[in-house]
């Protein structure tokens, strides 16, 4: 019974295939990796299956696939302009990966890939890395104008540059922590309230009555978590677009 109400257990990573420790680093095919590939397969097969008809008047599944496409495309166009469409596959992959990972995590007993900081941090580093690399390739040193706001008095400029650099460096941190913390906290809260139900029902008839309260909470939290699952994927995609816009158009 004790393991049933351990709120941390759901984040446990266990090895499916141990690959030993080459170079002193533990390597293994884990449940996390299995879910990652599951997500990729799910996304790919859904999109290709939904569009198999290539019909002029879309079926329900096809319009869902088209909606996800148009949703990401319109986000990019509204934040980074038409030029931003060259990053469309990247933003779409990020959005759909985070979205499906979050939703798959809502399935009972499923593992939430995005509840691990290393995963969200890697995705955030990918975004910021793309911004920096593309920014320098496209604009050269002019990209550094990103850190020099125009129209600022000379004596304030050093402080402004420092602040801009700090704000730029905090972007990947906030991007990764936001997603990680939301998924982690939401899943823990759900599990804790679900644990209350189990604990209270163990206390007889009064406990059964009292368990209604945490049950209501769990139901409400589940709805909230579905919202958060979508919202965090959306926020991740929108912020990615905004950061990529900086790479496309540095300077304020």
């Amino acid at each position: 019974m004790a393991t049933e109400i351990d709120p941390i257990h759901q984040f446990q990573i266990f090895k499916i295939v141990d690959l030993g420790t080459p170079g002193g680093i533990e390597l293994a095919f884990t449940n996390s990796a299995a879910f990652m590939f599951g997500i990729v397969a799910l996304v790919f097969f859904f999109l290709t299956f939904a569009t198999r008809g290539r019909t002029l008047v879309p079926s329900r599944l096809q319009s869902l696939a088209e909606m996800s496409y148009e949703f990401v495309a319109s986000n990019i166009r509204s934040t980074a302009g038409n030029e931003g469409m060259k990053f469309f596959p990247l933003v779409f992959s990020l959005f759909i990966f985070v979205l499906v990972a979050n939703f798959v995590g809502m399935i009972p007993y499923a593992f939430t890939v995005t509840s691990h900081l290393v995963v969200t941090a890697a995705l955030a580093v990918l975004v910021i890395g793309t911004v920096i690399v593309y920014g320098f390739i496209r604009h050269g040193t002019h990209f550094l104008h990103l850190f020099v706001p125009s129209g600022v008095p000379a004596f304030l400029l050093p402080f402004m540059v420092v602040i801009e650099v700090i704000s730029f460096l905090s972007r990947p941190i906030s991007l990764s922590l936001r997603l990680f913390a939301n998924m982690l906290a939401g899943h823990i809260a759900m599990k804790v309230f679900a644990g209350f139900i189990v604990m209270m029902t163990a206390g007889g008839a009064v406990g059964w009555l009292g368990a209604v309260l945490p049950l209501t909470m769990v139901v409400a939290l589940t709805a909230l978590e579905f919202l958060v699952a979508f919202l965090q994927a959306y926020v991740f995609a929108v912020l990615t677009c905004i950061y990529l816009n900086d790479a496309l158009h540095p300077g304020h």
Partner: peptide, 8 residues
């Protein structure tokens, strides 16, 4: 668990 997570 970081290296294996990152690689996969």
């Amino acid at each position: 668990t970081f290296p294996s997570q990152l690689i996969w």
